[in-house]
């Protein structure tokens, strides 16, 4: 499993990306999807997932609906139009960062420069 500090900064983007691909998802479904896609390298704990979901909702990036499933309330999350825009931006930012990081860490040395430096 990957160290927590690697995951922490990317949870928001992972959630936005997943919700961009799926119309609506509930908390447990998100953790299962992430575990499956990462071949169990990333396991989202309750503590990592829910504060981020609530924050995204309070920022207006997610919209929620509830349904009663198997005698219990299930809350589904979906992207708002604003959330869809932010998801695209965040994913491309992370991809760019990933590309730069790979370049830095590759044996050939860095081929690109980080604009923020």
């Amino acid at each position: 499993m990957l160290p927590k500090e690697f995951i922490r900064g990317t949870i928001k983007t992972i959630i936005l990306k997943l919700l961009a691909q799926n119309k609506k998802m509930y908390g447990y479904e998100i953790t299962q999807h992430v575990a499956e896609l990462s071949q169990k390298e990333i396991i989202l704990s309750y503590g990592a997932l829910y504060p981020v979901l609530y924050k995204l909702e309070s920022e207006g990036l997610l919209i929620t609906t509830t349904e009663v499933v198997d005698n219990r309330v299930r809350k589904y999350y979906a992207l708002t139009p604003e959330g869809k825009k932010v998801a695209k931006v965040k994913v491309s930012e992370l991809q760019e960062f990933n590309r730069i990081l790979s370049s830095i860490l590759s044996e050939a040395g860095p081929r690109v420069s980080l604009k923020i430096l």
Partner: peptide, 14 residues
């Protein structure tokens, strides 16, 4: 309560 309901569902799913 909103979080409690979600935690119940999440735990029950597991």
């Amino acid at each position: 309560k909103p979080l409690l309901a979600e935690m119940i569902d999440h735990t029950c799913c597991e």
